[in-house]
Simulated scan of single mutants.
Amino acid sequence: MRSFAVLDDLGGLLMEPLRVMDLFAGCGGFAEGFRTYAADELEGRQAFRIVAAVEFDRAAVKTFKANHQAAAALWLDVAAFDPYPFVGQIDVIAGGPFSHGFSGFGNEQGDDPRRRLWEDYTRVVAVVRPKIFVLENVDRFATSDEYGRLEEAVQPGGPLSDYTLARGILNSADYGVPQARRRFIVIGTHKSLDSAVPLPAPTHAEHPSVEGSPSLFADSSTLLPWNPVDAVFDRPMQMTIGGTNLPERHDSDGITGPFRTSLDHS
C-alpha cells in the first residue's frame, strides 16, 4: 500500500478515502490498520474509510462498533452474509479467515471445516468486485491444498479471473513491530487497474548490516534493525488503552469488559 500511484485510477484517490469492508473482522485490528494508515502523498488526509464489517463473535462486534462508529458492523456468520447491497460501494475488502484449521497449534486436519472459510471470503469478493482485496492467514496456508484452490480461482474461467495476485510470507518484525510473527499475505488487484499492488517493502531486518541479510525487496543497507520487545515493556505500564475504545463493563447485551491489566489472569 506504499505505492499510491498504483491506485490513481480509482477515481480521485487523493480527494476521497477508499472504502473498506472487513470480513472476519474480530475487534477491528485489520480495519484499524487501514483507518490509521498515513502517506506523505495525502498530506494528513484520510486514505481509507471503514464502511462495513462482518464478525461472528458478539463481544468482538461490540468493540469494533466502539472504534468504528460510522461503519455497519454486522454480527453474523460470513456464510450468511448477503454482499449484494454493497456492490459498487466498496473499494477494498480485507480479512483474515479463521486460521485454526492450518495453525501448527491445531491438528491441521484436512476435514476441519474451518479450512474452507476462505471460500466465504472469496464469495464476497466475487460479488462485490472491489478494486483491491487483502487476505491474511498463517504461513501454513501458503502450502495447503486450499490455497491451491484459491490460485485456481484467479485462472481464466474462475470466479476471480479478473484479479492478479501478489503473495508472500511476511514477518511483522520486518515492519517495525517488536514481535516476530510470520503471516501469509495475499493482495488481489483488479485488472482494471494499470498495475498490481505489490507486497509492502520491509523497513527493518534482524541483521541489516550483514550482507545477504533477508530483505525480500530492499537493499539491506537501507533497513533498520528489528525493534526489541523491551522497547514496549520497559515503558511505564499504562492503565488506560490510548486510542482504543471498549464497551462499558456491563452493557444491555450482557457483554462484559473492559478490564484493567491488574484484573487479568486473577
Rank of each mutant, 00 (worst) to 15 (best):
A201K: 15
A201G: 05
T203I: 08
T203P: 09
H204K: 10
H204G: 04
A205S: 15
E206L: 12
P208R: 00
S209K: 12
V210Q: 07
V210H: 06
V210G: 01
V210T: 04
E211W: 02
E211C: 01
G212F: 05
G212K: 10
G212M: 11
G212S: 07
G212C: 07
S213L: 05
S213K: 00
P214M: 07
S215C: 12
S215F: 03
S215G: 14
L216N: 01
L216P: 00
L216S: 06
F217L: 10
F217Q: 04
A218Q: 08
S220W: 06
S220G: 00
S220L: 01
S220I: 02
S221I: 00
S221K: 15
S221Y: 07
T222Y: 02
T222I: 00
T222L: 12
L223Y: 10
L224R: 14
L224H: 11
L224D: 11
P225D: 02
P225Q: 07
W226T: 08
W226E: 03
W226Q: 05
P228D: 13
P228S: 08
P228N: 10
P228T: 12
V229W: 05
V229H: 10
D230E: 15
A231K: 05
V232R: 09
F233C: 11
D234G: 13
R235L: 14
P236Y: 05
P236F: 03
P236K: 11
M237K: 10
M237A: 15
M237E: 15
Q238E: 15
I241R: 09
I241S: 09
I241N: 11
G242F: 03
G243S: 09
G243F: 04
T244R: 14
T244L: 15
N245D: 12
N245R: 15
L246K: 13
L246F: 15
L246A: 09
P247V: 11
P247T: 06
H250M: 09
H250P: 00
H250T: 06
H250A: 07
S252R: 09
S252C: 07
S252F: 03
D253I: 02
I255V: 14
I255D: 11
I255H: 13
I255Q: 06
T256S: 12
T256E: 09
T256F: 12
T256R: 08
G257D: 05
P258V: 01
P258R: 01
F259E: 00
F259S: 00
F259P: 00
F259G: 01
F259K: 03
R260V: 02
R260I: 01
R260S: 04
T261P: 04
T261V: 14
T261S: 03
T261Y: 04
T261R: 05
T261A: 14
S262R: 13
S262W: 02
L263R: 11
L263P: 00
D264A: 14
D264K: 14
